[in-house]
């Protein structure tokens, strides 16, 4: 793994790092809390923060502002926090498992996979419930990840960053072409456009509920394997030498990615680069211990998407800017920075 930051802090005392992580965690929770409030307060009609507080503590059904807050803005803000957190954690898990700095949901074609599965579901099983749709998107996301990892792993020279990125481009391109072909053939192209734009405009409490369920399962598994993942990220041989069941860890890791990335994509469509950027920043701050990286990535990712989504609503108000554009604005330069540092062989 290039990007020499991975073991940067390994010489530091562990308590020091845990202490720093704790401080960062408290800071990010506070930040998330305030950004959520800010996100709910700002919008097409600005609402006082105190009214937001009242809407939560003393909901008044006759107050339109309270209605807007409870039914539109709050679920949206909460969903943004969850989706951002999920994307960041699945990126962290992918980077840990593949020991590849470019691994992340957007680079690995997860979105295209989920969109493909949704189109297939839409066309062939139109009566599918929301939960069924979500399940389809899990499968699609998983399909893309498995294909990309398989292509990379079975190729000469192994899963290098370039191979991973190119395999992601190829698999993503193929899946999105198939989706377009299917949607044109069955004339469901209009429903597809949502996927390309992405965004959190259509979230409601029902989507938050599904996200929460997926999140609890996914994050618990992620935390459970985080210690083993730290060892695995040092190298497959070390991990095996210490008696770890690497296949089990990898399988669980891929399941985490299915659940978290699949849920995030099924709610928010294309929101790129959070899963790439956040794990790198987190690793830079707290070192290579995944027990610290995973919870912190979740907080940072949530914070970033809440801020980005609020920005998306305000930049060109009253029109919405796709939030994926905002995250790409941050993510593309970061990707380029990583790419410039890349000097490995194919």
């Amino acid at each position: 793994m290039k990007l020499g930051e991975v073991n940067r802090t390994s010489h530091e005392e562990r308590p020091k790092r845990v202490g720093r992580a704790a401080v960062l965690f408290v800071l990010s929770v506070t930040g998330l809390f305030f950004s959520l409030g800010w996100s709910v307060a700002l919008g097409a009609s600005d609402i006082e923060l105190s009214t937001v507080w009242q809407a939560v503590t003393a909901f008044d059904e006759s107050n339109t502002n309270h209605q807007v807050i409870q039914e539109l803005r709050m679920p949206r803000a909460v969903a943004a926090a969850l989706v951002g957190g999920f994307l960041a954690v699945s990126g962290a898990v992918m980077q840990g498992l593949t020991r590849n700095p470019l691994a992340s949901p957007s680079v690995m074609g997860v979105t295209h996979g989920a969109a493909f599965a949704l189109i297939v579901a839409l066309v062939f099983f139109p009566s599918l419930s929301n939960a069924g749709m979500m399940f389809a998107s899990f499968i699609g996301a998983g399909l893309a990840v498995i294909l990309v990892i398989a292509v990379g792993s079975f190729s000469k020279g192994g899963l290098t960053p370039v191979k991973l990125a190119l395999a992601g481009v190829a698999i993503g391109g193929m899946l999105s072409s198939l989706s377009t072909a299917i949607s044109l053939h069955f004339q469901v192209a209009k429903q597809m456009s949502f996927w390309y734009a992405g965004g959190l405009a259509n979230t409601n409490w029902a989507s938050v509920k599904v996200l929460l369920i997926a999140g609890i399962v996914g994050l618990l598994i992620a935390l459970a394997i985080s210690k083993s993942m730290t060892v695995l990220s040092l190298g497959e041989d070390i991990s095996k030498g210490l008696g770890q069941n690497t296949i089990l860890i990898k399988t669980l890791g891929v399941i985490v990615v299915f659940i978290l990335a699949g849920a995030a994509v099924s709610v928010a469509g294309t929101v790129g680069f959070i899963g790439l950027v956040i794990p790198h920043i987190t690793r830079f701050l707290v070192g290579s211990d995944y027990r610290l990286i995973i919870p912190l990535s979740a907080m940072f990712g949530g914070l970033l998407l809440v801020v980005a989504d609020t920005g998306a609503r305000l930049v060109n108000a009253p029109y919405e800017t796709p939030v994926g554009v905002i995250t790409a604005l941050i993510g593309v330069p970061f990707f380029l920075y990583l790419a410039r540092g890349e000097r490995g062989s194919m």
Binding site: P161, V162, Y196, G272, G324, V332, F335, A339, R340, M346
Partner: peptide
């Protein structure tokens, strides 16, 4: 290799900019 990776990144950047107008 750098050329290819940078190309992928720039591609993503243009795609995002495209969506903005689309």
């Amino acid at each position: 290799i750098r050329l290819i990776l940078v190309g992928i990144g720039v591609n993503a950047g243009f795609s995002a900019a495209l969506i903005l107008f689309q």
